[in-house]
Design a protein around this nucleic acid. Structure first.
Lengths: 353, 353
DNA sequence: TATAAATATGCTCATTATGAGTATATTTAT
DNA sequence: ATAAATATACTCATAATGAGCATATTTATA
């Protein structure tokens, strides 16, 4: 038995990915690092590959060393602190990613990279530490997910026609039908409209249709490794890919899509947003944070009612002075709300556009 | 970098745990295997340890071999099929467990066992395969979680007094206050009552209070490994532990608690139960499955309304013949319900006892 | 200083969802 | 024929939700 175990170990490695989220100026941001070298397990030393699209933006990543760290979470805290100077508070496990070719270089004989993703919500934005950490607007990676200014034009101009074209040209008729339905569900052709939580489903469709930059990059790497000449990519496809947001390393954008969907799902029934705000805040500040994460506008009066009568916050008696019109009262989060069974959280409505 | 990676590998190993759930005769069951040998990574060859409580019941477990399996999920399917003869359908990742001393033998120098848990919902119960697979009523592991026949007496007779005693005797006053609140939230002293989803929180409290069999076992193993003589355990503690359900191997009962909580949470907003039922079913059958998982009774007429007017099921026109009174109509699941934004799922009420 | 613009807050009203119960229908067992 | 068991339909009170109007309190500016 022990031998069996040891033999397995040599071909996979456990890492940790951190999805660190903050909201400032109504923009939801995630922390990225620049150095892809840390991430790739590439055994190809000669860096002769010329990526067609820059992919140096990556999620913070660190190995998990069971000798040092009692739990996965502690391991995460440790190297995040080192790389970014951030002292994470509450973190939550997102998902464990272990598919083959998450790292395309695995084809060339590298070990399987299994990584456990963690979401952290933080207040502050100051960065230090060793890494080249940077905050990124997460809608730069998913431009079709922000509906606060109305339905993004990219959906009708680029996504829908191209995705439809892709679906209709699938050869196998059964598979075509399946993907027609996936398309319909993910992009809300159906009566019920857009579901803000289906971020991953939308991303996966776009990837499979070859419209996302990573899809082009991965196919090129695969060709390169298997010794074929790199396939020609039409300029138009590259154009589309560029309009569909910033490319990330490996499958990091997929991980990010998972995280965004998860956060949006939680908004509905847990008071997650309070980790993103200062100890006291106005209701507008709170609402703007929820709207930033949800990518949607909410009805102000009803939001107030939900959050106040729902017992999620309580007034402090103090007022905010810096604003333009009538000064708003400062509220604080009611910790007891967590223990009260009432669906404490803030709701996202169905799309209203 | 590569060297660094290789070095890490020698101290952790990735495995997969399957939580396979079925409901028959109004009893939610999980699949267990009997052979602990498969699970323990113990380097202690001389089996001189005499467990005070039998712990041969374990969740199916298998190693993950990246050479063979493209994804974690495929790896799971593969060995579950071999061990149990079950062909799993839809599975869902639960959580990744990687704390130190999940396997108490790790103290003796074994590698860290990191395992990814997957939940699978199945219809059938026939078993074959190589393992000693068996179905177990999952309330055998959590007798305080089944409220279908009213509030379980074990809560007031055993759990509350002992847990209260434990809390009140915590030395540090701040820690005592924290645990008082945890107790109050988990076991519903607060007005809002019992929250059916907080399965893990309840289990963890009972474990930390030393009331669960695993807690006693683990402390004995730790003492044994560190060379101390095994601490005496009062008969009363063992009695309590026995009344609090069947003991499982390693941290398997904790994993199971996580799964039960997850499933109950999903009941509220996703139509998960349909994987547990035949293609057509009566509304009573459907309701009984939901009740079995939720551990609570529901109002029949309202359940019907929820599920029919909510568009979750549709009538087939056929009727069931085998029942006692008026024959019920057979329904089928409406697949389209998934794509409709309306909170499709079945709700669990707050406790009504 | 008067007024407009901006923001916060309070309140109403229609619609829908939920919890609980009564009433009726259709079957099998005796 | 009648009782028991089950399914199904309907009612009603209360709570939650979505949308909007009205008023209050501030700053900016004519």
């Amino acid at each position: 038995m022990s031998n069996n175990v040891i033999e397995l170990e040599t071909s996979s490695v456990i890492g940790l990915n951190a999805i660190i989220i903050a909201v400032t100026d109504e923009v939801p941001r995630i922390l990225t690092v620049y150095d892809v070298g840390q991430l790739s397990l590439s055994p190809l030393s000669s860096g002769q590959m010329e990526p067609i699209i820059d992919d140096k933006v990556a999620l913070p990543f660190g190995p998990f060393d069971p000798k040092i760290h009692r739990t996965l979470e502690l391991g995460l805290h440790n190297w995040v602190e080192k790389q970014t100077g951030l002292d994470l508070g509450y973190v939550e496990q997102l998902y464990t990613f272990g598919d083959r070719h998450r790292d395309p270089y695995e084809r060339a004989g590298g070990p399987r990279l299994v990584s456990v993703g963690y979401i952290a919500l933080v207040r502050q934005v100051p960065l230090s530490g060793s890494g080249e950490a940077e905050w990124h607007n997460w809608y730069d990676f998913f431009p079709w997910e922000d509906w606060r200014e109305g339905r993004p034009i990219i959906i009708d101009n680029i996504i829908k026609p191209n995705l439809k074209h892709w679906v209709e040209h699938i050869v196998d008729s059964q598979e075509r039908e399946i993907n027609r339905e996936r398309f319909s569900i993910a992009f809300g052709i159906e009566p019920a409209g857009w579901d803000f939580e289906r971020v991953l489903e939308r991303y996966e469709l776009l990837y499979e249709a070859g419209m996302i930059g990573e899809a082009i990059r991965d196919s090129q790497i695969r060709a390169f490794i298997s010794g074929q000449s790199a396939p020609d990519v039409e300029d138009k496809r590259v154009e589309i890919a560029k309009s569909l947001g910033t490319i990330m390393a490996l499958d990091n954008r997929r991980i990010l899509a998972t995280a965004l969907g998860r956060i949006r799902g939680k908004l509905k029934y847990r008071p997650v947003v309070f980790d993103l705000l200062p100890a006291t805040f106005t209701l507008l500040q709170l609402q703007l944070v929820v709207e930033a994460l949800g990518g949607v506008r909410l009805h102000k009066q009803n939001f107030r009612r939900l959050v106040v009568t729902g017992g999620l916050v309580e007034a402090t008696g103090q007022r905010d002075s810096l604003s333009r019109g009538r000064p708003a009262e400062l509220f604080r989060f009611r910790r007891e709300a967590i223990s009260e069974r009432t669906a404490s959280g803030v709701g996202l409505p169905a799309a209203r556009f």
